[in-house]
Structures are given as structure tokens and as C-alpha cells.
Design a protein around this nucleic acid. Sequence first.
DNA 1: TATGAATGAGCGTTCATTCAT
DNA 2: GATGAATGAACGCTCATTCAT
Lengths: 208, 208, 208, 208
Amino acid sequence: MQVKVRSVISTARRTQIVRAAIETLADVGFDKTSFAEITRRAGLSSQRLISYHFEDKNELLWQIVNDIYSDAAHFMDERMKGAGSALERLRTYIGANLEFLRDHPREIAALTEIGPHLSTRSGDTATSMRVQQPVIEGLASILYEGQENGEFVMFDVQAVAVMIRASIERAAQWLHADPPLDFDSYRQELIHTFSLTITRSRDSVRNS
Amino acid sequence: MQVKVRSVISTARRTQIVRAAIETLADVGFDKTSFAEITRRAGLSSQRLISYHFEDKNELLWQIVNDIYSDAAHFMDERMKGAGSALERLRTYIGANLEFLRDHPREIAALTEIGPHLSTRSGDTATSMRVQQPVIEGLASILYEGQENGEFVMFDVQAVAVMIRASIERAAQWLHADPPLDFDSYRQELIHTFSLTITRSRDSVRNS
Amino acid sequence: MQVKVRSVISTARRTQIVRAAIETLADVGFDKTSFAEITRRAGLSSQRLISYHFEDKNELLWQIVNDIYSDAAHFMDERMKGAGSALERLRTYIGANLEFLRDHPREIAALTEIGPHLSTRSGDTATSMRVQQPVIEGLASILYEGQENGEFVMFDVQAVAVMIRASIERAAQWLHADPPLDFDSYRQELIHTFSLTITRSRDSVRNS
Amino acid sequence: MQVKVRSVISTARRTQIVRAAIETLADVGFDKTSFAEITRRAGLSSQRLISYHFEDKNELLWQIVNDIYSDAAHFMDERMKGAGSALERLRTYIGANLEFLRDHPREIAALTEIGPHLSTRSGDTATSMRVQQPVIEGLASILYEGQENGEFVMFDVQAVAVMIRASIERAAQWLHADPPLDFDSYRQELIHTFSLTITRSRDSVRNS
DNA sequence: TATGAATGAGCGTTCATTCAT
DNA sequence: GATGAATGAACGCTCATTCAT
């Protein structure tokens, strides 16, 4: 796999542009995030600077997504280090995720805006599913682990993973809504709810 | 408030256009849903027909949203009729919602596409929050009711309502993903999880 | 086959634009013939007028080519009417072709400029060969006819047809060069040369 | 006239670039032959390398043309050495020209692409005439010679020279067309046709 | 009620070239 | 001798909308 070597100065410029693009996306939304608008906000000398440093708009978008995902992954790894049992891992996972959301509202907003507009590098129709799938799987692996070692009861891992991710991600928009969701309360309810459901047998109550 | 009177023929045309717009949105996404594209797909005589029957693009979008919400509301009302207790109402609410999602994939897809692009009539920055707020409140009222009559324990209603809505709405994209989520299983897990959390006291287990 | 119906006014506009495009191509060459330049020269109110009346640049190009070919075909048909024998037909063909070239220098210049830049409607790589092939075949049919009825001797029809077309078409640029080619003299030499070669047996002199 | 002195290494680089440019022109045509594209194909380290070694694009184009013309001239000189009479010289001229075309398809393709885009060094509008004029004159001198020593009859030398050049040059595109022109047959017909016309008096047959 | 015609503003992208080492 | 970085100008094209019947 060919890895492009970039100079220090080039990398710095790319970082600057990515930063400006994130701010622009968060402020005015995807539709109005044109190269011209980014240029304006970043105070770049020319719009051409962007197309000079990025192959095309899609490459810029991917760079943004990757940068943010890298940050998030690094943050998560740090937090997950101390976690032992599957239950503890799950609680840490949820808590850390919510904290990242809370502390990086603009990055998350940018991600949300970009979501539906990502094209695969080969030009195929984009599908945000493809980006979310591995995220779901990461969470699912924690749940499987708990089931295997007997910490958790049996349940539909896929379904529960989707619910947890949905509940985490949806928090992003409500945390900065007006009035905002109460962060600590939401985290507690979220952790409580899913700790409960994965530790209580489905035998007793069956519902249509 | 001024209420516009429309002739039968005008209403029929609007319906036709709304239908075509929904199909277009579901097929090609928001970005490519131009008046020209809708015109093409609907076989309309002129693109001008759309701007004649709708003030502007935003009005068309609102019409689509309102039409679909009306359908959904009507469907929900029918299903909620027989439900007695708050718990039963909640379970019916979740189940009916999921069924509507499953049975109206194209309408939901259209709604999803439109979501981030709705502007208020006054031209202000759009906020999908404003559309979702009353939906959350509708659900919250069921939860409050259960708490008041002692069916449910005390918990953060707002938080739980958000989680439930998130879990419902996120189902839409996974139900038609490849491979798809198992509908019945997802419904069961969803109902089970939230039935559990609203009936079990938070006293015992406190988590960070 | 779907035939687009155009209003009188639309057709007039298209004609006006095609005319302006021909003049522009003849004056400044293909590279500088942008929509903006055509707009300027034609005194159009907006560059958008062109993309309104033509699907894209390629459609405009094809319209130009077709219009000129139609004119040429009509002119040729008129002149060929009286011609009887194959030899007479060939001489008329050559003479009429040269006259059209002489009398329509700007159209020919436009055609020459467009030549290498035509794309097939399906977007495939263009090949000027595909446009020239039928022209060669039209000429070849005259030569075959003469061979069959004994007016002409046997020779490589394809080769001679290519030479005649080359000699005709190349005249276009020299007729308006500085100093210009002498039209009457060129016509006479051209007709003489090929009348001779198609009526003299190849038996006697064979050359490497 | 100022003659630029170039180092060995500089000359080698120029040659490399010229070669890459020829291949690019032959493969993708003039329009897509940008510095960036040439750089890519040649595996050059930077697009800047081209503008470093060549004043501007036009100088690169002229270098290509001159290089190819030099090759052709050298090839022609070799072949023409043995030819004695004017007729023999003409036949050799035609044959050798066609062979060069056949054996250097990519160079000829490059030349054809460049043709209409050459500008004079002073920046004036290009004229391919100026490049072709001396070529015509070289051929015309053979014809004049034959007329003067009585080998050929009297005819319009300019006209016949243009026809011969046209017939030679047009062969280039048909030789590599699909299906291709038969090379040997075309050469024979070409030589036969023009041998004939320059040795037969115009007195007898006069045509309109 | 419907339509054709027109339009200004904006888009991402491409180009050869220049600046500064 | 070579290079990275930067740049203004232009391109074809798309958009929702307005004008005028």
C-alpha cells in the first residue's frame, strides 16, 4: 500500500484546513460548507489552497472523519485500560463515549453533517452504514464477551448494541439543545438501563 | 392565522408532487433531489409546476413532513385506542412505532433525508430539535402518567424518553440494511429493556 | 425514438447560439470557445442561456456539426442532380465539394476545430473516424459504380477515396491561407489527376 | 541569435520530458495532456521539473515538433540519397514518408494533436500553416526540378504538392484505424496516381 | 391553472505559472 | 539542478427562483 509522504509544512496546512472545515461544518452545516466558505473562515489566501492540499472534496471529508475517529479512539483506549469485567468495560464504554460527545460538540456536529455525504474512495455510493458497522461490532464484542464468561444473560447482542449506540449518539444533539439534557442524569440512566437488561433473564416476562 | 383555501385540483397536484418528492428523496437522497429531478420522475410537464404550487422549496419540504407525520399520527392513534395501563400504552407505543417504520421505509427515508435541511418558515437556521421536541413530549407524557399512578418507579423521564426515541428511530436504517436487523427480536429487546428499567427502583444499584 | 418538440422561440434561440458558436470557433479556436466567450460575442444576456437551451457542451457541438452537415448535404444533393455517368458524378462531387469549402470558410473552420473534441452521445471516447467513415463510403460508392459499369478500371477504391477526400479537405486551409491557393487551378488539377488515375489501367507500370 | 547552452544533464532531462509528453499526447490527446498528467506518466518528482526545464508550455510543444521533424528529416535524407531522376526522387519521397508514418505512429499522433495548438514564440495566434509551408516547398522543389529537366509536363506545382502532402498525411490516421488501410496498396495507388498526373499533358482533356 | 423562457449566484475542479528556497 | 508551496483565472454545470404570458 502506497503511503504518501508529506512535509511538515504540508501536514500543518492540512491540519489547519481540516480544523477550519470542522468549524465551518459545525457552524453552517454541510450544504453551505463550500471551499469558498472554509477559505473565508480560515482566512486562507486562496480557495485554491484547499484543492492544492486535498485531492478533492471527498478526500477532505475523509480526513476530517479519520482525524476525529482517531481522537475518539485514542480517548477511548485510555479510558478502557483499567476496566476489568465485561460489565465494567461496558459501563466505562458508555461513560467515556458520552464524555467525548460532551467535550467535542463541534467535532461531533461536523461528523453528523458529513455522515450522509461520504463517498467511498472508489466513487461508489456512500453508505454511512459502512462506517457504523465496525463501531457496532466493537460494542458487540464486549457484550459477547460478557455472555461467554457468564456475566451477562442471553439476549440479542446485535439488537442491544444498536440500542446502546443509538442512545449514545442521540445524546450529542440533546446535550447542546436548548434547554440541554442533564448530562450526569442521562449517563446514569443509560448505564443503569443497559446494565439491568443484560443481567436479567428474559425467561420470566415475554412480551409480544 | 390566515388559512389558504385550495381547490380540489390544486390539492391533487400538491399530493402528486409530494408523492414524487418522497420517492425521489428515498431514491437519490436530499442533495440530488432538485426540482428538475422531481419533475423528471413525476413526469410533470414543467419544473415550473412545482414552484407554482409551492411557495418555495422549504414549503414543499414542510408539506412532506406534515403529510408523513399525519399518516403516522393516525396510525398510532388507531393502535393506542385499546391500551389501558401506562405500561401497556408504552409497549403499544413502541411496537406500533416500529411497525410503522417497517411498513413505510420510503417515507422514513425521505424524512431522514429532509431532517437536517428543514428551515423555519421565517428563514432562520433550521432546527430538527423543534420537530422532535413534541414527539419526545408525547412519549414523556406516557412515562409521567405511569409514574404518577404508581406503575413506574421514579427516573429521569426526559432521559429515558430520549433513549426510547433514539432506539426506535435508529431501527429504521438497520431494518433495511444489509444484512437487516431482525425485526421481531429487536422489538422484543426494546420493549423488554425499557419495561424493565421503568419498573425497577434505582435505589439499589448506583453507578458513576 | 423520442423526438424532442421545441417551440419556435426555443428553436430560434438555439439557432442564434449555434451561429454565435460557429463564429467564435472560427475566430478564436476550440480552446478559447467557452460559454462565456460565446455569450460575449453573441451579446446574450447570460451565459446560463446556453446551458438552458442545450443539455451540455457536447450537445451544442453536435448541433453545430449536424447543422453544417445538413447544409452541405443539401448543397451537394442539388448539384449532383444532373450528373449522369459515374465520371461526371465524380467530377461534380469534387467540384461541388470544393465550392462549398470555398463559400463556407467559417463553417469549415468551426468543423475543423470541433473535430477532435466530439464525444459520442453515450460519453465514449470520441473518434473523428466515426464521423468520416460514412463520408468516405459515400464517395467510394461512386467509384464502385464506375468500376461496375466499366467506366473505370480496377483499383483500390478505399485508397483512392481516402486520397480524394484528403485532397478536398486539405484545400480548406490553403484556400484561405496567405497567400491563398488558386481555387480554379486546384479544382482542375484535382479533377484531372483523379479522372486520369481511375481511367488508366494499372497493368503497364508497376511500382514498388 | 542567442543560442542557449545546455549541460548534458539538462539535455537528458529535456529528452526524457519530451518523450513522456509524446506518449501522453498519443494516449490521451492534447486536452488532457497537462503538466500534471505528463509528470504522472513520466514518474517525475515534481510538476515543477517541466516548467524548470522549459520556458513555458509552448516551448515544450516546439521542442517536441522539432525533435520529431529532425528524426523524420534524417530518415528521409538517408532514403533519398540514392535517388537520381526527379521521378525516382518523388516516388522515393512518397514511399519513405509513408513508411515513417507507419513506423512512428505515436510521434505522428503527438504531432497531430499538437498541430492546431502551436503558437509562435511571440505569442501570436498559432498557424500550422507556418510549419507546413516549408514542407510543401521541399516537395514542390522536386516537382519544379522535374518540370525543368523535362521529365514532367507542366502543371500547377503548388496544387499537386498540396494534394500529395494531403494524401500522405491523411494516411496516418487511416493506417491505424479499425479496420486499417492496406499500407502497400495505398502506397502503390498514391505513387501511381501522381506519377501519372505529372507525366501526362493537360492539353488533351480540359474539364470545368 | 399552467407553462416556457430566462437568470444570478454559486459550485468543485483544472490549468500553467510564479515565489522562495 | 531541483523542489514544495502557492495562486488567480477560468471552466462547464447546477440550483431555485422570477418574469411574462
